[in-house]
Design a protein around this nucleic acid. Structure first.
Length: 155
DNA sequence: GCCAACGTTGGC
DNA sequence: GCCAACGTTGGC
């Protein structure tokens, strides 16, 4: 079981939007970056857990957690000519982009801001601080536990 | 809105 | 395969 950090702009899709989905299950789609795509397609597995990160907003940071309930499958939006995520070079035989399904786990009563992460000695190696633009990234067990503690979670 | 970082595109 | 131009991300 592995840990990840997934980024989303809360104006587009927030932790509250995920929590409001039927059974708390939503599709994580719209990934259009090859490095993020490769991680999503090849490494993210059912049962893995993720930090739900809010980016490009007033207080960027980790807002909550979710569980991967379905491993990678072709992102339907790439085939939809009306979608913002349409890709004319993708085909059903040769899909280019992938998505996963995730289930809401919890929303932090105390979100862990990027500012807090920057100031925390145990989090200096987070990919978030080293490669700021990567939207799907690995998180170590130590980082996961520390974030949970900073968020006021017991476990 | 600005700008740094960095990914992508396309000419050669 | 190089690299300039351009586009996007995302913090501030």
């Amino acid at each position: 079981m592995n840990y990840w950090l997934f980024k989303s702009e809360p104006d587009e899709y927030s932790i509250d939007d995920l929590a409001a989905e039927p059974r708390g299950v939503g599709r994580w789609d719209g990934i259009r970056n090859y490095q993020a795509r490769n991680i999503l397609r090849d490494e993210v597995k059912k049962g893995d857990m993720l930090l739900f990160y809010h980016s490009s907003c007033k207080t960027p940071g980790v807002a909550g957690r979710a569980t991967v309930v379905k491993a990678a499958y072709p992102d339907p939006a790439q085939f939809d000519a009306n979608s913002h995520y349409y890709d004319a070079k993708a085909s059903a035989d040769n899909p280019r982009w992938f998505c996963v399904d995730v289930r809401f786990a919890d929303k932090f009563s105390q979100p862990v801001s990027l500012k807090t992460i920057r100031s925390e000695p145990g989090l200096q190696d987070m990919v978030l601080l080293k490669q700021g633009r990567l939207s799907i990234q690995p998180v170590s067990t130590g980082e996961w536990k520390l974030i949970a503690r900073l968020a006021g979670c017991k476990a």
